[in-house]
């Protein structure tokens, strides 16, 4: 019957559109930093944060990332951090502080117009590692450095 055929076509269309948008959604979630997400900035352990950020992808330690931090920070409220990298095709640089209540400090999505470099001043609650994760294509590289904090950055 013609009516049935029309109905079938309509449904087939809906199904294919929804599966298409499903795929697009999947692709977008791969580029996880497109928007500010509560999930990323949730308090908790750093391992859980990294898991939520990169859904379990492997981090490769790299000497092509230069992470500049002070070895001793007198004031945890202002710790200067700069990251640069000689890696090709850098898409984003992410900064984390190991023992902060919210471990994710910031993510910087850089277009190819930018040199893989970022400098910022961050807060550190206590002595811990600063971790920089550099995303290039499908690979995640990381570097870390310990910062000894003599006065925590939590108290204003």
């Amino acid at each position: 019957m013609p009516g049935n055929r029309r109905k079938f076509l309509k449904q087939a269309c809906i199904i294919s559109i929804s599966s298409l948008s499903g795929t697009v959604g999947l692709l977008n979630s791969h580029d996880a930093f497109a928007e500010w997400l509560d999930d990323h900035f949730a308090p908790g352990k750093i391992d859980n944060t990294i898991e939520r950020l990169y859904s379990g992808a492997k981090l490769v330690e790299s000497d092509k990332i230069e992470l500049k931090v002070p070895r001793i920070a007198e004031n945890g409220a202002v710790v200067p951090v700069s990251v640069s990298s000689s890696l090709e095709n850098v898409q984003s640089i992410t900064l984390l502080a190991d023992k902060n209540p919210v471990p994710l400090v910031a993510t910087f999505i850089l277009t190819p117009d930018m040199t893989p470099f970022v400098s910022a001043r961050i807060k550190m609650a206590e002595t811990s590692h600063v971790i920089a994760i550099v995303k290039t294509g499908d690979t995640l590289y990381m570097a870390q450095q310990q910062v000894k904090v003599t006065i925590g950055g939590c108290g204003g």
Binding site: E35, H40, A77, V102, L104, T107, F108, L110, D113, M114
Partner: peptide
């Protein structure tokens, strides 16, 4: 933005210091 084209998008929260300072390098 550089000449109306977005070159850096950054997301952050309370772990950036008061009165934030950032530096970036544009290739051109």
């Amino acid at each position: 933005r550089h000449n109306d084209k977005t070159v850096v998008t950054s997301h952050m929260a309370g772990s950036i210091s008061k009165d934030p300072y950032f530096a970036f390098i544009l290739n051109n």
